[in-house]
Protein backbone atom coordinates (compact mmCIF):
# COMPACT_ATOMS: atom_id res chain seq x y z
CA UNK A 1 0.00 0.00 0.00
CA UNK A 2 1.09 3.60 -0.50
CA UNK A 3 -1.55 5.77 1.05
CA UNK A 4 -0.86 9.17 2.58
CA UNK A 5 -2.40 9.28 6.04
CA UNK A 6 -2.25 11.44 9.11
CA UNK A 7 -0.69 10.15 12.33
CA UNK A 8 -4.13 9.94 13.93
CA UNK A 9 -5.56 7.97 11.00
CA UNK A 10 -2.66 5.52 11.27
CA UNK A 11 -3.12 5.13 15.02
CA UNK A 12 -6.84 4.53 14.59
CA UNK A 13 -6.64 2.10 11.72
CA UNK A 14 -3.58 0.00 12.52
CA UNK A 15 -3.79 -0.72 16.24
CA UNK A 16 -1.59 -3.67 17.20
CA UNK A 17 0.54 -3.44 14.06
CA UNK A 18 3.93 -2.15 13.03
CA UNK A 19 3.75 0.65 10.51
CA UNK A 20 6.44 1.88 8.14
CA UNK A 21 6.01 5.39 6.80
CA UNK A 22 8.03 7.36 4.25
CA UNK A 23 7.81 10.88 2.83
CA UNK A 24 6.62 12.10 6.20
CA UNK A 25 6.12 15.54 7.73
CA UNK A 26 6.96 16.30 11.37
CA UNK A 27 5.48 18.91 13.66
CA UNK A 28 7.52 21.34 15.77
CA UNK A 29 8.07 18.61 18.37
CA UNK A 30 9.34 16.34 15.59
CA UNK A 31 6.32 14.05 15.91
CA UNK A 32 5.06 12.58 12.66
CA UNK A 33 2.06 14.54 11.39
CA UNK A 34 1.46 12.61 8.20
CA UNK A 35 3.19 10.37 5.72
CA UNK A 36 2.89 7.65 3.13
CA UNK A 37 2.21 4.25 4.71
CA UNK A 38 4.53 1.71 3.07
CA UNK A 39 3.26 -1.24 5.06
CA UNK A 40 1.39 -2.19 8.20
CA UNK A 41 1.80 -5.62 9.70
CA UNK A 42 1.80 -7.37 13.07
CA UNK A 43 5.06 -9.04 11.96
CA UNK A 44 8.02 -6.91 12.99
CA UNK A 45 10.43 -8.73 10.67
CA UNK A 46 8.11 -8.02 7.74
CA UNK A 47 8.07 -4.36 8.70
CA UNK A 48 11.86 -4.35 8.75
CA UNK A 49 11.98 -6.00 5.31
CA UNK A 50 9.71 -3.27 3.97
CA UNK A 51 12.46 -0.77 4.80
CA UNK A 52 14.50 -2.38 2.02
CA UNK A 53 11.96 -1.40 -0.64
CA UNK A 54 12.97 2.27 -0.64
CA UNK A 55 16.06 4.31 0.11
CA UNK A 56 14.95 7.54 1.71
CA UNK A 57 14.10 8.37 5.31
CA UNK A 58 11.68 6.13 7.16
CA UNK A 59 9.61 6.15 10.28
CA UNK A 60 8.68 2.92 12.01
CA UNK A 61 6.70 2.29 15.14
CA UNK A 62 4.29 -0.13 16.80
CA UNK A 63 0.79 1.27 17.13
CA UNK A 64 -0.08 0.67 20.74
CA UNK A 65 3.22 1.42 22.39
CA UNK A 66 5.83 -0.77 24.01
CA UNK A 67 4.95 -4.07 25.60
CA UNK A 68 4.18 -3.32 29.28
CA UNK A 69 5.94 -6.56 30.16
CA UNK A 70 9.14 -5.29 28.59
CA UNK A 71 12.13 -5.68 30.89
CA UNK A 72 14.91 -3.20 30.31
CA UNK A 73 18.60 -3.83 30.11
CA UNK A 74 20.17 -4.19 33.52
CA UNK A 75 23.72 -3.43 32.59
CA UNK A 76 26.05 -3.02 29.66
CA UNK A 77 29.53 -4.02 30.77
CA UNK A 78 32.35 -1.87 29.43
Amino acid sequence: MSERMTYHQIEERFAGEWVVVRDFVRDDARIIKEGVVVTHTPDRAAAHRALDTFDDAFAIWFVGGPNPDFCGILSLPR
Binding site: F24, R26, R30, I32, A57, F58, A59, I60, W61, F62, P66, F70, G72, I73, L74, S75, L76
Partner: peptide, 11 residues
Protein backbone atom coordinates in the same frame (compact mmCIF):
# COMPACT_ATOMS: atom_id res chain seq x y z
CA UNK B 1 14.79 8.38 10.23
CA UNK B 2 12.26 8.31 13.02
CA UNK B 3 12.04 5.53 15.59
CA UNK B 4 10.48 4.87 18.97
CA UNK B 5 12.77 4.06 21.88
CA UNK B 6 12.05 3.44 25.53
CA UNK B 7 13.61 5.80 28.05
CA UNK B 8 15.71 3.49 30.23
CA UNK B 9 18.16 5.20 32.51
CA UNK B 10 18.82 1.79 34.04
CA UNK B 11 21.17 1.12 31.18
Amino acid sequence: SDLVFVLDTGT
